[in-house]
Simulated scan of single mutants.
Amino acid sequence: MGVLCKTSSFIKTVIKNRFFSLKSLKMCSCDNKIAKPEIRTLHYVFKIADRRKTMEFYKNILGMKVLRHEEFADGCEASCNGPYANRWSKTMVGYGPEDDHFVFELTYNYPIHHYDKGNDFIGVTIKSQDILKRAAENSWPIIKGNVLEAPGGYKFFIDDEPQSDNPIDKVTFSCSNLEETINYWNCILGMKVYSRDDEIKTAILGYSFKQTKLEFIQISEKINRAEAFGRIAFSCPDEQQLVIEAKVKQIEGKILVPLTSLDTPGKATVRVIILADPDGLEICFVNDAPFRKLSQYTPDDEKILIVQMQKDDERMLEEKKI
Score class of each variant (00 low, 15 high):
I283L: 04
Q240S: 00
Q163F: 03
C284M: 09
E282Q: 06
G123T: 08
Q129T: 15
N186H: 01
K26G: 05
K213T: 15
Q129V: 10
R87Q: 14
D99R: 07
L214T: 05
E70P: 03
L214W: 09
N86F: 09
F19T: 11
D159G: 06
S89A: 02
L242N: 07
R225V: 13
K36I: 15
E180K: 02
P167G: 06
P265D: 14
F102Y: 01
K127H: 12
K320Q: 02
F157A: 03
V103I: 15
K6H: 00
H69D: 00
M316V: 06
T260C: 06
M191A: 10
S9N: 02
S235V: 10
I322L: 08
V66N: 01
L256Q: 09
V286D: 10
P299S: 10
D238F: 14
I244A: 00
F20Y: 12
P167S: 07
Q310T: 14
S128T: 11
Y184F: 14
I112D: 11
V270C: 00
E252P: 02
F291C: 06
E161S: 14
V171S: 04
V243P: 02
N109A: 01
K192V: 13
Y108G: 04
F216C: 02
M27F: 13
I283W: 04
V243R: 00
I322T: 13
D198L: 07
P265V: 09
H43G: 07
A135V: 12
Q211E: 15
K65S: 15
L189K: 02
F102W: 05
K23M: 08
P258S: 06
A233Y: 11
E302N: 02
I143E: 15
F173V: 01
I322M: 12
G118E: 09
E215I: 08
D31S: 13
N138Q: 05
F72V: 10
F291P: 03
K254D: 14
I168C: 01
A228C: 07
A233M: 09
G96V: 05
D100C: 09
N177K: 00
S79H: 10
D197Y: 02
T212S: 09
A246N: 04
D31E: 15
R68W: 10
I131C: 00
K155C: 06
N138K: 01
L281D: 11
L317N: 06
M64K: 04
